[in-house]
């Protein structure tokens, strides 16, 4: 599929889940009549209204039972390896159903694609039960999982479509709200496992994922005004992580910063730290994310502020860490 700048702008209004389901999965359904979608009373929640109206027989509702939803998805795929998408909030498709995910996707490797929407703090005041700030860490520990995390609506479309090309289990993490800020204003090349460098600068490398890519680009702009030049990387594939990109990053930066709308334990920052642990003579890593607490409840930006995840806060933190000479 090719995407014009005008279309990309239109998709941005749909939010990541709206674009993923309304554009990406609709296209997949045209290409692959065998594909099935399982929901847990989540046609509306996963923006699958248009999909359901077009292909009612290909959508299976498991009821509000996410564990069963993942098991049913595995069963549907088990005979011929057809792709089955299971779609609902990230907090439920993964966190609630984790044993069914480990067993059916991790161990048995059925061709099931979990599409978790509203990850991070996007569920706002519905709060902790509906947030997903541990999902990447949980998915990462499971063998055979591929984890994709979309930075904007266009990338969300590309993630759900790329998931179909992978023969095996995938977790697609979608986040943000309607009117999702754009990272990619033009069509771009999306390859699973290959990070996109969006901006080049010699001082600091910011490796971000999901909604934090846009915030990191804005932070880099603020830092540039102070003479601090940042490279910004969109790490859309968290597993398998792009180690070539990490090697390049470690070789050239004074400071490496990871930014994620997720706990700093076991997510993107954790993955980079684990990879870094085996290396010598490499720059310091600062992990920006949720620091092992739940924080106060509020709207998306308020929640980000609680964890230092807005562009000005990211810029301020980077400046401070650069000035912390003892540790750099």
């Amino acid at each position: 599929m090719k995407f014009s700048p005008a279309l990309i702008k239109t998709y941005a209004r749909m939010g990541q889940k709206g674009a993923a389901a309304g554009i990406g999965m609709m296209e997949l359904a045209k290409q692959d009549p065998d594909m099935r979608v399982v929901v847990a009373d989540s046609v509306a929640i996963a923006s699958l209204g248009r999909f359901y109206n077009s292909y009612p027989d290909r959508v299976i509702n498991a009821g509000i039972s996410e564990q069963s939803m993942v098991g049913i998805a595995a069963g549907l795929s088990s005979e011929d390896g057809r792709a089955v998408y299971a779609c609902t909030y990230a907090a439920f498709v993964l966190v609630k159903a984790i044993e069914f995910v480990r067993h059916n996707l991790g161990y048995h490797q059925f061709n099931v694609k979990l599409v978790g929407n509203s990850a991070g703090f996007a569920m706002e005041t519905l709060s902790i039960s509906h947030w997903a700030t541990e999902d990447i860490a949980m998915a990462r520990t499971i063998p055979n999982m591929t984890i994709l995390s979309a930075a904007d609506c266009l990338e969300a479309i590309k993630c759900v479509m790329a998931a179909h090309d992978i023969s095996g289990p995938v977790y697609v993490r979608l986040s943000g709200l309607l009117n999702c800020p754009m990272v990619y204003e033009q069509d771009f090349d999306f390859q699973v496992g290959k990070a996109n460098t969006l901006r080049e600068g010699e001082d600091v490398t910011i490796i971000a994922t999901g909604m934090m890519v846009r915030e990191s680009l804005d932070a880099a702009e603020l830092l540039a005004a102070q003479g601090i030049n940042c490279t910004v990387v969109d790490m859309h594939t968290i597993k398998p992580i792009d180690t070539k990109c990490l090697d390049k990053t470690f070789a050239k930066s004074k400071l490496v910063v990871s930014v994620e709308e997720h706990t700093i334990i076991g997510g993107l920052g954790g993955a980079i730290a684990e990879y870094k642990a085996d290396k010598e003579n490499i720059p310091r890593l600062v992990r920006i994310g949720v620091e092992d607490n739940f924080g106060k409840l509020g709207d998306l930006r308020f929640c980000w502020e609680q964890h230092g995840l807005t562009a000005p806060q990211i810029a301020e933190r980077i400046e401070k860490e650069l000035n912390n000479k003892k540790r750099v």
Partner: peptide, 16 residues
């Protein structure tokens, strides 16, 4: 393996 794991799977298998 884990108790209760098979029944949702079976529903998916019978449904397809």
């Amino acid at each position: 393996m884990s108790l209760g794991m098979e029944m949702p799977f079976v529903v998916g298998k019978a449904l397809i």
